[in-house]
């Protein structure tokens, strides 16, 4: 149960619970702040019309994302001049910034795994229950180590967003994560926040 081959299936997702360590292998796509806003504005809320290669990119990423993972990551990439791309450092970025978008993006693209750090809020937890999906916590700052699990860069979309903000299509092997939000309404982050708040209140009551 420890090793997972992407894409997921519903049965696998439903069997996962908070605290499970996993090693992921297969194809996933990076996407962070600019990508989430672009997805929501262009294809979900449609507050801006598609421009440039938007529609081609949309078609290309749909099959990559369905049943698989979006990874909140802005990598350090070598080979930018030769286009022989290699991930040099690729840890997770803070996920909470995508909270306004993530649930809608998961539903729209049927994304079943969101990888990042720091956890997400109630809207994403709700989407995890519906899609179904999970939030997978990677180790923040462990960038060289995670980059070694990226075996190949298969392509890149929207490089004009900048290297950190582009969508990098990567093939990973034994990418280490921990389930911290599951499809059954459980969130380690909500638990820790609540427990630590009780301690904080005690400490604040002291001189």
């Amino acid at each position: 149960m420890n090793k997972i081959q992407l894409p997921f299936d519903d049965q696998t997702i439903l069997a996962l619970k908070v605290g499970d360590p996993l090693y992921l292998s297969g194809v996933m796509v990076t996407g962070r702040d600019t990508v989430h806003k672009w997805m929501v504005d262009t294809f979900i809320k449609k507050t801006r019309p598609p421009a440039g290669d938007d529609l081609q990119v949309y078609q290309a990423i749909q099959p990559l994302l369905a049943g698989s993972c979006i990874y909140h990551c802005g990598p350090v990439v070598s080979g930018l001049d030769t286009q022989e791309y290699r991930f040099v450092a690729a840890g997770p970025t803070t996920s909470s910034r995508e909270e306004p978008y993530q649930g809608d993006v998961m539903r729209h693209f049927k994304i079943q795994g969101v990888i990042g750090k720091g956890g997400m809020g109630p809207k994403t937890l709700q989407a995890c229950a519906e899609v179904p999906g999970v939030y997978l916590h990677a180790i923040g700052g462990a960038a060289s180590l995670i980059a070694q699990t990226v075996k190949r860069v298969l392509g890149v979309y929207k490089l004009e967003f900048g290297v950190p903000e582009a969508m990098w299509v990567i093939e990973v092997e034994d990418f280490p994560v921990v389930v911290t939000m599951d499809a059954h309404g459980n969130s380690l982050h909500a638990e820790v926040a609540q427990r630590s708040k009780a301690v904080l209140d005690e400490l604040l009551a002291k001189a």
Partner: peptide, 28 residues
Amino acid sequence: SAARNALDTILMNVELSRRNSTPICQDT
């Protein structure tokens, strides 16, 4: 524990970055 595994991973990454001269964290 998840906390212990996180710290072990962090220390492995520190050693790897030093050996390979690659960024410890991608957010430099």
